[in-house]
């Protein structure tokens, strides 16, 4: 600013008018600017030439036509699309359309996200699968002729062992879930008597599925699959042999310990026979001679074993009525 003043003084006589004019225009501009920001004022003696920024030229890239246009009609498709891959319009010579538009036809295959989203099976065409099967046959052995159907298989090989292998892209090949081993066997394929079966089911608890008749033993407490497998085998053996063993305390089982109501050993039977032969005390508790006794037995057992509901209560009522020879008045 100082230098300007000096120059201003020096050149005052010559170009006074010019400078005045300049000041007038400058002050106008500065006034408008000072409202906006409170910075030092800048004196521009020469108006700044606007530097025209050149637009960046977009380089033209020449794109060859998609290779789908060059494909012969008798080409070997499995070689063109050998593996699972996201859909690509330039490699698939099919006029595919996918998606929805309000008006007009569905969008075509180019830049179509709908086609890229869905998994395709272009690599698994029937000829490709057939060829894969032919190629893999060299690693397969013949199926044993005797094992014709599933029934025979499960008969000869009743035990099924299920474990899972995991395969994904990661530096480690270990997966903790691979250690879990499932051992399945049908209850009917084990040799058991009533006691053993009863004991086995008690021991198994929820490991037994009564609907499918399958015992499932899952072992996952050891770190390795082999250890888990051996443990599962051990568990099956242990539970099997344990169920066959009869302990001395099992003879001490009283009615209160019974897991179900047995009418033959119950008080109900004694009472019924005693009542029937009354006043003579019964010599044996044979209930066959009592009319409707079997019906009564079934009704009582059902009522206690299966729980009370309208049906069983009604049945019991009918049985008692029949037994006591009480007939409905209106019926008579």
């Amino acid at each position: 600013m100082l230098s300007f003043r000096l120059r201003f003084k020096a050149s005052l006589p010559q170009n006074l008018s010019k400078i005045l004019k300049l000041f007038a225009t400058r002050s106008n501009i500065l006034e408008t600017n000072s409202n906006e920001s409170e910075q030092f004022r800048v004196l521009d003696l020469y108006p700044q030439t606007k530097v025209m920024q050149e637009k960046r030229k977009t380089r033209k890239t020449s794109i060859p036509p998609s290779r789908a246009t060059n494909m012969p009609t008798d080409q070997d498709w499995p070689s063109v699309w050998p593996g699972a891959r996201t859909f690509h319009p330039a490699s698939v010579p099919l006029p595919l359309r996918q998606g929805y538009q309000e008006k007009g036809a569905s969008p075509n295959k180019y830049a179509n996200a709908e086609l890229m989203k869905i998994p395709n099976f272009l690599h698994l065409t029937p000829p490709a699968i057939q060829r894969h099967c032919e190629a893999l046959k060299q690693f397969c052995t013949k199926w044993p002729t005797v094992l014709e159907n599933e029934e025979i298989c499960s008969k000869h090989f009743p035990i099924e062992i299920i474990s899972s292998d995991y395969c994904y892209s990661s530096p480690t090949i270990r997966d903790p879930l691979a250690r879990i081993v499932n051992l399945q066997v049908k209850l009917s394929s084990l040799y058991l008597d009533t006691h053993a079966k009863d004991k086995l089911l008690r021991l198994l608890g929820n490991k037994y599925n009564p609907e499918t008749d399958i015992i499932t033993i899952t072992a996952d407490r050891c770190p390795l699959r082999k250890q888990n497998l051996e443990y599962a085998w051990y568990l099956l053996m242990a539970v099997y042999h344990e169920s066959w063993r009869v302990e001395s305390w099992e003879a001490e089982k009283s009615i209160a310990d019974m897991e179900y109501f047995d009418w033959d050993t119950s008080q109900s039977r004694t009472s019924l026979v005693t009542l029937y032969t009354w006043p003579i005390p019964p010599t044996d508790y044979d209930y066959e001679i009592i009319p409707h006794a079997t019906e009564y037995k079934i009704a009582v057992s059902d009522l206690i074993n299966n729980g009370e509901d309208q049906y069983s209560v009604n049945k019991y009522k009918e049985a008692v009525k029949n037994l006591l020879n009480l007939k409905c008045d209106n019926k008579e």
Binding site: E134, A135, Q138, T141, V146
Partner: peptide, 27 residues
């Protein structure tokens, strides 16, 4: 019941067998 022995194969044999079904795609 005669169950045949497993046919021994290296870890990449299956991949190689599948690869043999593919020919060069000149396009």
């Amino acid at each position: 019941i005669y169950i045949p022995n497993r046919i021994e194969r290296s870890p990449t044999d299956i991949l190689k067998a599948l690869e043999s079904t593919i020919s060069r795609d000149y396009t």
